[in-house]
Design a protein around this nucleic acid. Structure first.
Lengths: 172, 172
DNA sequence: GGAGAGCGCTAGCTCTTGCAAGCATTTCGC
DNA sequence: GCGAAATGCTTGCAAGAGCTAGCGCTCTCC
């Protein structure tokens, strides 16, 4: 298991920044997140690598979404279509029809971007301006955090092929 | 740290099911995922609880999205609005304008659902029928997997309040 | 000045995760 | 049938996650 120093992103600094932005002490955050303060200190300084559960608790305490925290820790990547579609699919606040609509719009956007990437590099904002006003303020902080995160290349590997019965298997 | 038996979902069975569906042996999967085969055996039987990194590797080897795997392991929840917005925000295949559009549409849907939930229970499909066709087939398998997963209530806690300088702090 | 509270950190400890070595059983080919 | 290969599992160990007890420092109040 890699040490915290091997994390693709400096999750400790991220957590400390969030904490200081929220103007709470290390102990307060530790208490709220349900972890020990010495341990949180070590995490922030990169001496320890927190598990996903701890990250989840910290995300909750810092009012950051769990995926955002995982993203920063390298436990998730943007995952393109899969991420958005999956999120839409599990959203309990959308009707089935709305899910279909959003999925369709999303696919349309992606198709447009793919087409224009193969054509001229230009503004793809014409169709995107189908809708209207600004983004609610509450999303700005989230966006800033997201923009700050480098997209880590990853994703699902090709499916494992069914084992060939005549193929000798390496002994582990 | 809870043992594998305390997982909200039986991640081990999930992994074994996927593996058997793919018709590969435990060793083949272990090799492909880069974990030891005895350990994988223990994970499948619930004797060990895999870390997020291991889950990520298994997801890749089994050609399952990482979020889906995490969802099954209780490391992510549907997260409602936060999930979809976060996914949109990190999607590398969308332009900023498209992200704004999707976000806005999503918010509109949610507002409509909230409004109609407070009014008469009825068909909220009128506005939702702005768009059209079916969902691409490649998403069906993902949807089935998602539907199979109970949505775990969770999400971000209220933001921690800035520390009051006069407020005594509990010693950890 | 001293006492108390709050801060972040050190050090030693326990428990868990993941591994290597190896075992028992089953399957396959001769 | 036998031997080899494949399969899944047992066992003991090391490294690391996360904890408790406690430290040194700073600040505030008397």
């Amino acid at each position: 298991m890699a040490t915290g120093k091997d994390l693709p992103q400096d999750i400790g600094s991220f957590i400390r920044d969030l904490r200081q932005t929220a103007k709470i002490s290390l102990r307060q955050l530790a208490d709220k997140a349900g972890v020990s303060n010495p341990y949180l200190s070590q995490v922030e300084r990169g001496l320890r690598k927190p598990s996903a559960e701890v990250l989840q608790q910290l995300a909750s305490a810092l009012r950051v979404s769990t995926p955002a925290m995982y993203l920063r820790a390298g436990l998730l990547d943007g995952e393109g279509a899969q991420g958005v579609l999956a999120a839409i699919a599990v959203d309990p606040e959308l009707t089935i029809a709305q899910k279909q609509s959003l999925t369709q719009i999303y696919e349309t956007f992606r198709n447009e971007n793919a087409r224009q990437a193969s054509e001229a590099p230009g503004a793809g904002t014409t169709a995107a301006e189908v809708s209207q006003e600004g983004v609610p303020d509450e999303d700005e902080a989230l966006r800033d955090a997201m923009q700050d995160v480098a997209v880590v290349e990853g994703g699902a590997a090709p499916a494992p092929r069914p084992a060939q019965t005549t193929e000798p298997e390496e002994k582990s």
